[in-house]
Amino acid sequence: MKYIDQIDLKDKRVFIRVDFNVPLDKEGNVTSDKRVKASIPTIKYALEKGAKLIIASHLGRPKGKRVAEMSLKPVAKVLSGLLQREIAFLDDCVGEAVEQATGKMKEGDIILLENLRFHPGEDKNDAEFAKQLAALCDVYIDDAFAVSHRAAASNSAITDFVKTCAAGFLLKNEVEYFKKAMVNPAHPLVAIIGGAKVSDKIGLLENLIEKVDKILIGGGMAFTFLRAAGYETGKSLCEEEMLDTARKIVSKAKQKNVQFLLPVDAVIAQSTTAEAEAKVCGVKEIPKDMIGLDIGPATISVFSEALKGVKTIIWNGPMGMFELAAFSKGTFELAQAVADSGALSIIGGGDTDTAIKKAGMSAKMSYISTGGGAFLEWLEGKTLPGIAALER
């Protein structure tokens, strides 16, 4: 795979596939520019090297139709503000008018194309649509890791029709940190896995057991593992149909000599509300009418101890219902323990990112992945079409 800083961009029309899938309010204003900011280093670098920039993204799921509320037009204003430069917005991403506009570009010009998903060919990874996109440029740069797990015309098929293809800095970071976590990690390597369901993380756990030294389990999914071990878990989230799978995962970890740590206590309540009275109890004593909503203080100690002296930490999924203050301590204190460990820490998955931010710990993590689903599928050992296309 080539990176943007390894190719000549001078006077070239450079097509950059970004992820500007930003939230909009009812008036069509961008409510968070985080994703736009994430691609600024790549965009600025291309401009410094004398490129003519064609920027493309999707927004929402318009299903191949033009949906006014999903236009990228509001993003042009945000991008213009961040770059302090004029952005030309085109109301389509292919066609004669687009070809004419991109054909007349001068060095330093920036065009933002309309939503790629307004065309059905985008999500279908259609070769004809990809060919039309490819005709606009001399160089293709992919900087949209968050959609790498979906084969689309703008991140997969397009690479068949553009001679020079490379990854932008955001994608480069994802690739480099993934290699540090899963390809050539420094050991001991620990995975912290949380979230609600075991069923969402089977592939992940099975792949991690082959690579890591320790796995720490929290979140709602911990109660399925505890039930599988023979404990009563009250009204806590439990996937009865996953009990056998949970036992097999624990057994496989044992065979591979992987330390598999489950909570020893929990913060419990009668309901998932801010008003509910929170109590702490051992996992063997959860009453029938109570719900486990966070890991308890003893578990925080055990998990924090397990992180001492480790070299690499991968974290996916919160330890409890961190959105409510009474059930946030497990996630927040573990975030502090990760920061204190001095290990290379790689955080991935939407909720984990939100939780770390809420804990005020974002700056203390080595890397926070920009792609929830993509990060998860990569950790599962799956091939990501957007990455594979650049490796061809």
Rank of each mutant, 00 (worst) to 15 (best):
262 L>C: 05
279 K>P: 02
282 G>F: 13
340 D>K: 04
342 G>Q: 12
325 A>F: 09
238 C>G: 07
333 E>N: 13
272 T>Q: 08
310 V>D: 00
278 A>K: 02
282 G>I: 04
268 I>Y: 00
261 L>G: 00
237 L>V: 05
292 G>E: 01
257 N>F: 05
242 M>P: 06
302 V>L: 08
315 W>I: 01
267 V>L: 03
300 I>Y: 00
273 T>D: 14
322 F>R: 08
244 D>G: 14
252 K>D: 04
314 I>Q: 02
268 I>F: 01
307 L>E: 00
255 Q>C: 08
254 K>T: 15
259 Q>D: 15
297 P>R: 09
307 L>I: 01
266 A>Q: 04
308 K>Q: 09
343 A>V: 00
262 L>E: 00
334 L>E: 14
247 R>S: 15
334 L>G: 01
313 I>H: 03
339 A>Q: 04
334 L>H: 09
301 S>M: 06
297 P>I: 12
341 S>M: 14
338 V>N: 02
270 Q>R: 03
238 C>P: 07
288 K>A: 14
267 V>A: 10
244 D>M: 10
279 K>N: 12
271 S>F: 11
249 I>M: 05
313 I>E: 01
326 A>G: 04
280 V>R: 14
265 D>P: 11
315 W>A: 11
317 G>E: 02
323 E>L: 12
332 F>R: 00
266 A>L: 01
324 L>P: 09
326 A>K: 08
316 N>Q: 08
269 A>L: 05
330 G>W: 09
235 K>N: 13
